[in-house]
């Protein structure tokens, strides 16, 4: 069995061992204690030239990685918290995302930016944000949210071997998830999208990243103890977002609940609901679509407030039951 954190490291090992044009750059890479087990000893295995620890300069480092990508490399920039990536926003949003389009499609930008969500632990407002939908709003960026160990590895490999800038966001609350891993599959990000992880009749549950784990657990609980079966989808790729399979599912179940561990306003859950609502006849819906999200407030520090702030499996179960009018 391999856990999610180790699977990320397996992805790095595969890339660094097989692709000389790959290197990784970011703060703390020679002492990667705050990225779990996902980068341990890479510098010792592959050398400090290709595993580059940097000055505290998110903007310059991200821009430098972009420049290296334009010069033929396949860099992976590490932002140990998504929050820190905001210091590099010009290079991510104004430069990397636009470069291909504004130069007439002549230039590929094989740049991967890995940012890590690290909720809880009383880290508070500036160390806990998700912000995926911010990035997913930007045409030109591919935004990847792996929820399983195999995706954590294989979608990292696909991101780095692709031709577009990718924001790959992993979540520390998933690092202990274990799986029996198959050999590495080389995926083409252009063909990857939402994956159905469970089949059922009563309601369609949609999540991404940590919310996919909540959906999986809620599905098991609903099936076991409430006689409810769910179609469950793990979004995996949220930009470009393709909701076709989810639309088909809602055509059958008539019920949609989207779970997102990010804010609701202009968020990912809203986008999924909008795409579905635009494609199904109102008569198909047996209840109003719903979402479980974070409250629209910055992350708190006190653990008492944290437990009120983050949705749990039971939050998803209760909401699903209310949509099924079983409570």
């Amino acid at each position: 069995m391999t856990n999610y954190g180790t699977a990320i490291r397996d992805g790095f090992v595969y890339l660094l061992a097989n692709h000389p044009e790959v290197f990784t750059i970011g703060q703390g890479l020679w002492s990667p204690w705050y990225v779990g087990n996902s980068m341990t000893n890479l510098d010792k295995e592959f050398g400090k030239e290709r595993v580059i620890d940097t000055p505290v300069s998110e903007l310059a480092c991200t821009g430098a990685a972009l420049g290296a990508a334009l010069a033929g490399k396949r860099p992976i920039v590490i932002h140990p918290r998504v929050d820190f990536a905001l210091l590099a926003i010009d290079q991510i949003v104004n430069q990397a995302a636009k470069w291909c389009h504004m130069f007439g499609g002549q230039v590929s930008v094989p740049l991967t930016i890995r940012a890590i969500v690290n909720r809880g632990g009383e880290q508070g407002a500036q160390h806990s944000q998700s912000l995926y939908s911010w990035f997913a709003h930007i045409p030109g960026l591919r935004v990847i949210l792996p929820a399983t160990a195999s995706d954590a590895r294989d979608l990292l490999v696909a991101s780095v071997l692709g031709r577009d800038p990718v924001l790959y966001i992993d979540d520390r609350w998933l690092y202990e998830q274990e799986e029996e891993l198959a050999p590495i599959q080389i995926l083409d990000l252009r063909r990857e999208g939402p994956r159905q992880t469970s089949k059922g009749e009563d309601i369609t549950l949609v999540g991404a990243s940590y919310a996919s784990l909540l959906c999986k657990k809620a599905d098991q609980e609903l099936r076991r103890n409430h006689g409810v079966t769910c179609d469950v989808f793990d979004l995996r790729v949220i930009n470009p977002l393709n909701c076709e399979t989810i639309v088909e599912s809602v055509q059958r179940t008539g019920r949609l609940l989207v779970v997102d561990c990010d804010w609701s306003s202009c968020g990912l859950a809203a986008e999924v609901i909008a795409q579905v609502a635009e494609c199904v006849e109102p008569a198909v819906l047996r209840c109003r679509p719903a979402r479980v999200t974070l409250p629209d407030a910055p992350a708190p520090t006190s653990s008492a407030l944290e437990s009120a702030y983050y949705p749990k499996m039971t939050t998803v179960v209760e909401r699903a039951m209310s949509l099924l009018k079983k409570v």
């Binding site: 290197f23 030239e49 290709r50 903007l59 310059a60 480092c61 991200t62 821009g63 430098a64 990685a65 972009l66 420049g67 290296a68 990508a69 334009l70 010069a71 033929g72 490399k73 860099p75 010009d90 290079q91 104004n94 430069q95 470069w99 504004m102 130069f103 230039v107």
Partner: peptide
Amino acid sequence: LYGTVPIVGATIPIAAGAALAAKL
């Protein structure tokens, strides 16, 4: 000429990164 853009200062780190690639 690998690119010119109007966000002031934006190509400065990009140039440094292309130089990093040359050094690697």
